[in-house]
Amino acid sequence: MLKPHEIVLESFRIIESEVGEHTFDAHEWPVVRRIIHAAGDLDLIHAVSFTRDAACEGVRALQEGVPIVTDVNMVAAGVHKPARAALGVDLHCFIDAPEVAQSAREQERTRSYCAMRKAVHDIGSAVYVVGNAPTALFALCESVSQGRVSPRLIIAMPVGFVSVVESKAQALALEVPVITVHGRKGGSAVATAAMNALLLMATDQTS
């Protein structure tokens, strides 16, 4: 029976065998490979997109100790703790903050939207990971467009049927590095996989 680490390596071997040649560079491919592995979906190789040298910029930001902000707890829970600790990178998610719930009620907005606005105000420049809520991505895009924040990287991977494609399009139009999965696909597991690939590269690991 294969050990856990061996299972991951064998999965990567199968992915690489079935994908064959590709155009992703040395920083991009580990991200794409982990996304495919997390989703069990080889078709995602055609959907993942990087702007402004995003993978390399993400690794550099993490090596500099730039904090991570996630839209939901499920994304935060999956972030690789040993790699994050080794880099001294803080992790923030404000979805359950009492003031966020209050703002959401008062403004008739989603908690995800208000949580992201709070993150922009409280944390500022960071690696932002959106793996669930397009409203969180809209809030981040608005803040960037308004000059309130300049993220070192945005992992833009909300999932679903309402406003998902539109929110990703807004992110891709920003003058900041973005990693996204085009279309309706995405989700917490996929966003976390991308984040963990960058963390592992930042600590000189690739698997």
Rank of each mutant, 00 (worst) to 15 (best):
residue 2 L to W: 09
residue 3 K to W: 08
residue 5 H to N: 09
residue 8 V to M: 12
residue 10 E to L: 14
residue 14 I to G: 03
residue 19 V to F: 04
residue 21 E to D: 12
residue 22 H to G: 05
residue 25 D to M: 08
residue 26 A to C: 04
residue 28 E to Q: 15
residue 30 P to G: 08
residue 31 V to H: 09
residue 32 V to D: 02
residue 33 R to L: 13
residue 33 R to V: 04
residue 36 I to K: 06
residue 38 A to R: 05
residue 39 A to W: 04
residue 39 A to F: 04
residue 40 G to F: 12
residue 43 D to E: 15
residue 43 D to G: 11
residue 45 I to K: 15
residue 46 H to F: 02
residue 61 A to R: 00
residue 61 A to S: 07
residue 63 Q to D: 00
residue 63 Q to L: 01
residue 67 P to D: 01
residue 68 I to P: 01
residue 72 V to Y: 02
residue 73 N to A: 06
residue 75 V to W: 06
residue 76 A to Y: 04
residue 77 A to M: 12
residue 77 A to F: 05
residue 80 H to T: 01
residue 82 P to F: 03
residue 84 R to E: 10
residue 85 A to G: 05
residue 86 A to H: 06
residue 87 L to E: 09
residue 87 L to K: 07
residue 90 D to M: 08
residue 91 L to N: 14
residue 92 H to F: 15
residue 93 C to I: 03
residue 96 D to W: 03
residue 98 P to H: 12
residue 99 E to N: 14
residue 100 V to D: 10
residue 105 R to L: 13
residue 108 E to S: 15
residue 109 R to M: 15
residue 109 R to D: 11
residue 110 T to G: 14
residue 112 S to C: 13
residue 113 Y to F: 15
residue 114 C to I: 03
residue 116 M to A: 14
residue 117 R to S: 13
residue 118 K to A: 11
residue 119 A to S: 14
residue 121 H to S: 12
residue 121 H to R: 15
residue 123 I to H: 12
residue 123 I to V: 15
residue 124 G to M: 08
residue 125 S to R: 15
residue 133 A to N: 08
residue 145 S to Q: 15
residue 149 V to L: 03
residue 150 S to P: 00
residue 151 P to R: 12
residue 154 I to G: 11
residue 155 I to A: 03
residue 157 M to L: 13
residue 157 M to C: 13
residue 161 F to H: 07
residue 164 V to Q: 08
residue 165 V to S: 05
residue 173 A to F: 01
residue 175 E to Y: 01
residue 179 I to V: 14
residue 181 V to D: 03
residue 184 R to L: 02
residue 185 K to G: 05
residue 190 V to Q: 08
residue 191 A to F: 09
residue 192 T to W: 03
residue 192 T to N: 03
residue 192 T to E: 01
residue 193 A to G: 13
residue 194 A to I: 10
residue 200 L to A: 03
residue 201 M to F: 02
residue 202 A to T: 04
residue 203 T to N: 01
residue 206 T to M: 09
residue 206 T to Q: 08
residue 206 T to S: 09
